[in-house]
Design a binder for these strands. Structure first.
Lengths: 335, 335
DNA sequence: TTGAAAGCGCTAACAA
DNA sequence: TTGTTAGCGCTTTCAA
């Protein structure tokens, strides 16, 4: 007991005794067992972070934000990559509940929150990031997300302002809220300009290179090919580039290409792609702060909290911006 | 007790009883507490992965390999980013020991293994990845790494074969084994060609963009500027590019640039940089498999295991390969 | 086939 | 200021 008091820095221990305890700890190489501690205290100082893929720079940056805030508050983080697979997601969530994490940050793989049952039962605090949940109704989980509708809207408007009228869009699965929202923003921009929405130009695929590649290929094979393509996330855009190169088309001369979400190393070194960027790191930071406040009961607010971060349009060259200014646009990747 | 038997699928339970137990579990929404389980069993089914930065695609890919193997064996992974900071590393290792992880995969931030004390005391299995430990002597930890000496050697030889004679090299801190090894490989190639090693062309900096930027700037400001630069890892190369652009020099016309470690999205889309690549995913997979075997006592071998993976030279254009073939090389990033 | 006892290492509550 | 008791939820051992 006295040892416990010393380790937890509690008062009521004679300095002399404290010293003796410390010495004994030193000599025996004793290391406290936080498993036992968590077990009795009923809290683990651990949060779970469930995202699609730790290989995706967007999530990785977000994760970094989470980790930094967690560390600052003496929390550990368990990372889980779902690969957008609802079964993996359900499995990971179950494991996290079993491990009795104090809270969970989740970018759900589907809009249906059926895998959340056990978490809700156990009343484990949870914060969504990046993606909404549609059901169960009235779930009202806190969320930190980017404004996908708005981002897609300004990106599409940008293409329209450059004269594009047939714009293809490739997004992730319908199961994911951002996919629907990005398509919605795209549609709003078209409608505002009085341009009819053509469903065949809208591809719900998957947020992966493979998805971007396949869908783009289909778009390029249409009888009346789009003059511009909207990549729904970084992976999709990379896949789209591959498809465009394969078709021996040039960006932006033959097809313009813009991306929702920046393409990390590439854009940094070679600022060519016109994109809308999201503040991934901030999303992680805010989500973690929110979660920890909830865990520690410092969040008095009862209603659903919704933090929506505005994305930013970064105009570069991949949509033919220079072309329209009567300047010969640089050409990308023309091998 | 009977519940325990049912949950663990042990025999010796009447089918009828089993059914009743399952029903009760269903009804009450019971979820086992793996904390308690780990506590009594003295194993957590968790491994710790301690790396420099989950934002670095190299480590991220490696992490993915670890995670996949872990999941396959019902292990969870706790990720820790040290930022190459030995204090953070020591702190994270301490936390992992307290959490009684079953094993640790570590890419050490320094060659001195002083932060490993508690792990060794507790006899927690550990596998190093990517980087060696120099001390304590005779520690003989298992390791899975790339062959940095060889990789740097072939990359340097490639530059030499293209006619470069003054080659600058920027690597990470001397504290990190790969930095020393890459410099060693570089030297070996020079010596083999009878070219004197000039110490001022060798920059031990840090494995970061900032490090690459600063050191490259210094190299470019030398009275007799190198004709080629060897970036010690992906981050360093990116920083080097920035410095080169800032100096208004062209790659490869004015300076050739090669990289140890590929530059993910960039190279994939725009295969321009000549690099040596490492099989990061495999490193993660092998390390995790090795560790889990050790944890489960299936690894009979007593001696130190050392798995060294050969890196691969990928020749592209950033070293002026096309120039020397009397073809006008493409120019990179000339705004 | 089922159940009771004991103990894993810790801390809250209380007692000395 | 220090120490004792009890209990967190599980599994191992042993008894019924």
């Amino acid at each position: 007991m006295t040892v416990s008091r010393v380790l937890n820095g509690k008062k009521g221990v004679r300095p002399e005794t404290r010293k003796r305890v410390l010495k004994a700890i030193e000599e025996t190489g004793y290391i406290p067992n936080s498993l036992a501690r968590s077990f009795t205290l009923q809290k683990t100082k651990t949060i779970g972070l469930v995202i699609a893929d730790i290989t995706n720079p967007f999530f990785t940056t977000l994760a970094r934000g989470v980790e930094n805030i967690a560390a600052k508050n003496q929390f550990s983080v368990i990372f889980c990559s779902t690969d957008e697979d609802r079964e993996k997601e359900a499995l990971y969530l179950e494991i996290l509940v079993r491990k009795r994490v104090d809270g969970i940050i989740l970018a759900p793989a589907t809009q249906k929150g059926d895998s959340l049952k056990s978490i809700l039962i156990k009343r484990i605090p949870i914060v969504l990031v990046d993606r909404e949940l549609k059901s169960p109704k009235n779930l009202d989980l806190d969320i930190v997300k980017g404004d996908s509708v708005y981002g897609a809207y300004i990106l599409t408007k940008h293409l329209l302002s450059l004269g594009h009228r047939r714009i293809g869009i490739v997004v992730g699965s319908r199961e994911i809220s951002t996919a629907e929202e990005r398509v919605q923003g795209y549609k709003e921009a078209l409608i505002e300009m009085g341009i009819p929405v053509e469903e065949s130009l809208i591809k719900f695929s998957s947020y992966s290179e493979e998805g971007g590649y396949t869908a783009t290929k289909e778009l390029l094979q249409m009888r009346e090919r789009p003059t511009a393509i909207f990549g729904g996330n970084n992976f999709i855009t990379v896949g789209a580039i591959t498809a465009i190169k394969e078709a021996e088309l040039r960006i932006p001369h033959d097809v313009a290409l813009v991306s929702f979400g920046d393409i990390d190393f590439l854009s940094q070194i070679y600022p060519f792609f016109t994109v809308v960027t999201q503040p991934a790191y901030s999303m992680g930071v805010i989500a973690a702060e929110l979660l920890i406040r909830k865990i520690e009961g410092r969040d008095k607010v009862k209603e659903k909290r919704e933090v929506v971060l505005k994305p930013e349009l970064v105009i570069r060259e991949s949509a033919g911006e220079l072309l329209t200014k009567e300047v010969r646009a640089k050409e990308f990747c023309s091998a």
